[in-house]
Structure formats: structure tokens, C-alpha cells
Amino acid sequence: MGKSNSKLKPEVVEELTRKTYFTEKEVQQWYKGFIKDCPSGQLDAAGFQKIYKQFFPFGDPTKFATFVFNVFDENKDGRIEFSEFIQALSVTSRGTLDEKLRWAFKLYDLDNDGYITRNEMLDIVDAIYQMVGNTVELPEEENTPEKRVDRIFAMMDKNADGKLTLQEFQEGSKADPSIVQALSLYDGLV
């Protein structure tokens, strides 16, 4: 993909415009910024974590950033290329609610087996709590990752089998306004 070129080839721009919710001009602008920050044309896990640390200076986002990195890194080569970056950004910032929920499901399904187990969710929720640090005051019933996961599973795990399917996750998330709101945070920002 033209590693350190400051412009993408027209056919690449066209393809990314088809695969995302961005215009050709927006794709070019994002590429310019991506190459400025990642001259090699790729972003590794350490660089990704560094970006998260800028956004969450009062907590430790390392663990959460690693989980997000793994979802962005579609081809699992340990690096995020621009096409992976822009497609994930498109879903998280401008995707439909169902697209965002499928993306979030992939984030929580750490072993990619098609289910979110209690332990997988606990890993992610714990990482989120570490990331936000003491900057967020949580209600008593959610002031630990374990309590939050218990509440989520009580609401979403309809067949009580200890794991969530994509359908259970989507339906449960849509029924909880706070989850829908959290997924909409990026709307309109890009």
C-alpha cells in the first residue's frame, strides 16, 4: 500500500471509500495523518498503546488498548495497516448500531470462538476500569469489574449457560440505554 507515500493510489482510495462510511477526501485526510504518525505505514501494539495513554492519562489503558489493537489487526500480523485502521474507525465512528455491536462482540470474544464467556467479559471490564482509573464515580452495584459483569450476565445471558452469543449480546445491549450510549460516543466526531 505504498508504505511511506503521502498519497494513496486512486484505486485504493476508491476501494476504501466503498468499504467504509468515509468520502474519498476523508480517506485521504486520514491517510495523511496516519502516515505522519506512522511513517512506516504500520502501527504496532506499543504505538497503539501510546495513543491510548494520551487519551487516558489518569488510568492505565495498556490492557484495553491491547484488546482493541487485536480487533483492529484483522489479518493478525501484529501490525495495523491503514486499510485495517480506516475500516475499524469507520465501523466504530459511523457504523450502524448492529455493526458497532458486532465489532464490540469481537472485542469481548477474546478467543474468537463465537461466545463471550464470563471470564472474557471480566478481562475486558477489568481493563476498562484500569483505563479510566479513579476518574469515573461508579454506583455501588457496579464499583468492581466483578459486580459489573454479574449485572451484565444477569441481564443478557437469557439461557443461563454462562456465555453470551452474538444475538444475546446484541439484544441485551439494545435493551440497556447506557450500552447504546457508550457505543454512540464516537458518532459525529469524525
Results as ranks from 00 to 15, higher is better:
6 S>Y: 09
7 K>W: 06
10 P>H: 15
10 P>E: 02
11 E>D: 13
12 V>E: 01
13 V>K: 02
15 E>Y: 13
15 E>L: 01
17 T>E: 13
17 T>S: 07
18 R>A: 01
18 R>C: 13
20 T>S: 10
23 T>F: 03
26 E>W: 15
28 Q>P: 11
29 Q>M: 08
31 Y>E: 15
31 Y>C: 15
35 I>G: 12
35 I>F: 10
39 P>N: 09
39 P>C: 03
40 S>N: 12
41 G>Y: 13
42 Q>P: 10
45 A>T: 06
45 A>W: 07
46 A>S: 13
47 G>Y: 13
48 F>S: 13
49 Q>F: 11
50 K>A: 07
52 Y>A: 04
52 Y>D: 04
53 K>Q: 06
53 K>H: 00
55 F>V: 01
55 F>R: 11
56 F>S: 03
57 P>C: 08
60 D>G: 13
61 P>M: 03
62 T>C: 06
62 T>V: 09
63 K>Q: 10
63 K>R: 09
69 F>Q: 03
73 D>V: 07
75 N>Y: 13
76 K>W: 04
78 G>W: 08
81 E>L: 03
82 F>L: 14
84 E>F: 00
85 F>A: 04
87 Q>F: 03
90 S>I: 03
92 T>P: 12
93 S>W: 10
95 G>N: 12
97 L>R: 08
97 L>T: 04
98 D>H: 10
98 D>R: 12
100 K>A: 01
104 A>V: 08
106 K>A: 14
106 K>Q: 10
108 Y>I: 07
109 D>L: 06
114 G>M: 00
115 Y>C: 10
116 I>T: 06
117 T>D: 03
120 E>A: 01
124 I>D: 03
124 I>V: 14
125 V>P: 01
126 D>L: 06
126 D>S: 12
127 A>W: 06
128 I>N: 05
130 Q>M: 14
135 T>C: 03
136 V>W: 10
136 V>K: 02
136 V>E: 10
137 E>W: 07
137 E>P: 04
139 P>D: 09
140 E>A: 03
141 E>Y: 04
142 E>S: 09
142 E>N: 00
146 E>M: 07
147 K>G: 03
147 K>V: 15
148 R>K: 04
149 V>P: 01
152 I>D: 05
152 I>G: 05
152 I>R: 05
153 F>N: 02
156 M>V: 10
162 G>P: 01
163 K>Y: 11
163 K>D: 06
165 T>N: 15
166 L>V: 13
166 L>D: 07
166 L>K: 04
167 Q>F: 09
169 F>L: 13
170 Q>L: 11
171 E>L: 07
172 G>V: 03
172 G>F: 02
173 S>H: 05
173 S>Y: 08
173 S>T: 07
174 K>E: 15
176 D>W: 12
176 D>A: 05
178 S>W: 00
178 S>M: 14
182 A>I: 00
182 A>E: 12
186 Y>L: 03
